[in-house]
Nucleic acid binder design. Sequence first.
DNA 1: TATTAATTATACCAATCGGTATATAGTTAT
DNA 2: ATAACTATATACCGATTGGTATAATTAATA
Lengths: 190, 190
Amino acid sequence: MDNREKLLECATNLFYEKGYDAVGVQEIVEKAGMTKPTLYYYFKSKYGLLESILESYFEPYLKRLEVAAEYRGDIPSTLHRTCREQLKIALENPKMYMFAFSLMYSARENDTYQAVRPYMVRINEIVVKIFNDASEKLGNMNGRQQQFASGFEGIINYYLMYYFETDCQDTDTDEISMNLVKQFMYGIYT
Amino acid sequence: MDNREKLLECATNLFYEKGYDAVGVQEIVEKAGMTKPTLYYYFKSKYGLLESILESYFEPYLKRLEVAAEYRGDIPSTLHRTCREQLKIALENPKMYMFAFSLMYSARENDTYQAVRPYMVRINEIVVKIFNDASEKLGNMNGRQQQFASGFEGIINYYLMYYFETDCQDTDTDEISMNLVKQFMYGIYT
DNA sequence: TATTAATTATACCAATCGGTATATAGTTAT
DNA sequence: ATAACTATATACCGATTGGTATAATTAATA
């Protein structure tokens, strides 16, 4: 692993543990075993480092999500694939998932929010698109596509939030996904 | 408004705008029109100031939520009251709601997370209790009370998140709550 | 081998960080 | 009147902040 990668990894871990603003550049380079000019050579600034972290995480994420969320006529299976893919991505790299999540809810004027916002918008668009494409089968949704998308993502991410807070075991993403999608589609009387 | 209150208000606004770690003590007292020793006189530390903000926000919040979430034999109406109360609280003080939310997802080792965690646990307990109390009517939930609670909170808070991101208008909490509860209970085919 | 370009380190910058020692008003109780 | 207490300001602390000018080192190229 070269120095650039090492910096990305160490910074990600520290950001996850303490938060972007609570981590100093000095701390990052110390953990990575080098000095500050190296970091500034590769990333220009602390914010540039953050952007690189987010890009290398979200670009593959979004590609996978787009594939999974492609509507092919069957709503349950589309939602299931979408849900499962998000669960898998989160469980493959819990630290990065949680860090990205924290940025999503960071203060509006904070750099971190500006950095992560475009990715969040794209995720939202992908999910909304599912319900748009499925509108033929779901019937008139009265413009509730956004509400459905928010609800769908809410159920998934709140499940993950609680999951990371507690057990972190027996992770059959397939089974969990089935469960969550069922809850989302048919409610609690199932 | 005395100096103590003024400090609480200015700090809350700044924390909401920039985030706890990105705001300096100097900045807070300047906005409040006083000097640092005054802040340290009332709150002992920056962290103590945060604790005071959270306590004065969450204690009434939790009391209201507890009342609303009291199960009296009717699941839909209990969920509706609970949902509506959370919407009302969020809309009464959007900045504080969003700031509290950001803390909820802040880094695990960050002071802010430690400060807000007990309140989040209590909110979760209140909501889980609904589904425990309702288990007689809902039948065997196979220990899915927590999943239901997470899903319920996820739908509400994700709705709010999107709401604060966009329109922020025509807020009939009663109607929205009916909608969200219906989606939660009966899914999307309604 | 000489030269150029890509990396990395030493040593520094002004500014800000959270926090405090001390002094000074204003108020209250004796 | 004076002692004690509450509340606020001046001026400072060492440590750390993000960032950089400069030089040395390494690797690739001519």
